[in-house]
Design a binder for these strands. Structure first.
Lengths: 132, 132
DNA sequence: ACAGATTGATTGTATATGCATGTATCTGAA
DNA sequence: TTCAGATACATGCATATACAATCAATCTGT
């Protein structure tokens, strides 16, 4: 599985770039989703990132423990919406420039056109998902 | 990270296809590497799959416990070369057709050209690796 | 109004992954 | 010949990931 191998390599590139901030690529994904959403509904985030709810649940737990996320009250007591804390926002601001450096390196490693192809594949995937 | 998201989705496709055999995509990767190599040197496999040696070490442990792999004696007592057992070979034979079905599904999900692009990216990556 | 179905999230369990470190072995140079 | 450094794996630890089962809250139909 070439995709799995590429994923390992590229994830390591991002993790390296973020290591000194004490955050990992997977976590930044979730933090950025929360940043975009404001108030993030877990199932919504799972849908956006194609993550299993149980995976998100523990990732959020860890990031709550680190003080980057906080849960919000909700009308429906079954839901556990969360959002960035101010520490979380500061972290995202520090992470973004390093993320961009890693992005450049990833682009170089993957070669011309790869990023665009990933975008097309994402689109294709969303399409297939919507049809099912 | 689109690559990470695609990896999650596609890995699940393969894992679903292989579930009834009790084997996962990550394990089939290693089994196939061992099948191709005959006698598989751990560092060689790590190089081929871009895996950390510690990761391979535990994956091999688990697959030894399941009776799919066995370690070989070696001139150099530091090395722990391994190979497929006959049970491992039988498993690979059963896994291959399911793997191919998953491959078709993956191709459909990722869309035209994606597989070829992954191949180009792999090539690019090997190039970058060789230069460093 | 309530029993049963549904929904949203967490928990139990297992595997995958990588970094830092440890341990045994090997090798080359003094 | 010996020993300092290099090499090949294994271990300790932490995170990521998903499936199955569970739990709690809500909804629905009668």
């Amino acid at each position: 599985m070439q995709l799995r191998r590429l994923n390992r390599v590229i994830t390591n590139v991002y993790d390296d770039a973020l290591r000194s901030l004490g955050v990992k690529a997977s976590q930044v994904n979730i933090l950025v989703a929360a940043w975009k959403l404001g108030i993030a509904n877990p199932l919504k985030v799972c849908d956006i990132l194609d993550l299993d709810p149980s995976t998100l649940s523990r990732n959020v737990q860890r990031m709550r423990a680190k003080g980057w996320l906080e849960v919000m009250p909700s009308d429906d007591a079954r839901q556990q919406p969360f959002r960035l804390t101010s520490a979380g926002r500061k972290l995202v601001e520090k992470a973004v420039p390093r993320w961009q450096v890693a992005q450049q390196q990833a682009k170089r490693l993957l070669g011309d056109g790869a990023i665009e192809m990933l975008g097309r594949s994402m689109k294709n995937l969303r399409q297939a998902k919507a049809e099912s």
